[in-house]
Amino acid sequence: MQTLGNFKLPPFFNYPPYFTLQPVRDTREKQVQLWKELILDYCKTQKISVIGLEEEFPLFSNPAIESKDLFINLCISAGSLTHEAREAFLAALVSEAGRAEWLDKGHRKCLILWHRIQDWADILLNFVKDNGLEDSVMTVEEIRSGPESRGTDLQGVDRIILMRALKLLEHKGKLAIFKGTSADDEGIKFSR
């Protein structure tokens, strides 16, 4: 079984047509579905929240397919997605409500929400409850890298996602966000 770091890859990752956008509708629907599953799975285990379309992303090329011909390293390489295909698969995730969002108008960066914002908010509330943090104050950075969050999904969570979840909770009156002492960090006051 092929792996990517500590991520176990499914068998069809070696199937060359998986890396070519299929023109036939039924086939393509299935292909897009499989890509969506794989991207979410991979991002979750690797804690990746942003995929840049123009950057290297390990999932988007398969060196095992590529290596069948050593002389090809030029423009398009075998077993790797074209820009069009990458955009198509990510767009499919975006169109499925709450699974991904484009970060810019040019569709160059995509925010992957392997937990939906609502789920992140629930995780935050549980985190507050479990650690008895009601009525106390924390900075955003503390939530991401503090000792309390170690070993939870919140550890190292993307700042953009965290801020979205926090704003959702503020909207519901579960906490208050205020400017902290340092310029680039906000303070959070959880309410009871």
């Binding site: 499914p10 047509p17 086939t27």
Partner: peptide, 24 residues
């Protein structure tokens, strides 16, 4: 289904219908 690569335009047997989306 097809694969377009520097090797050219090649056709493969369509495996997609046999792959489960709920358990990849």
């Amino acid at each position: 289904c097809r694969d377009i690569s520097p090797d050219g335009f090649r056709f493969y047997i369509n495996l997609f219908p046999e792959i489960r989306t709920d358990d990849i």
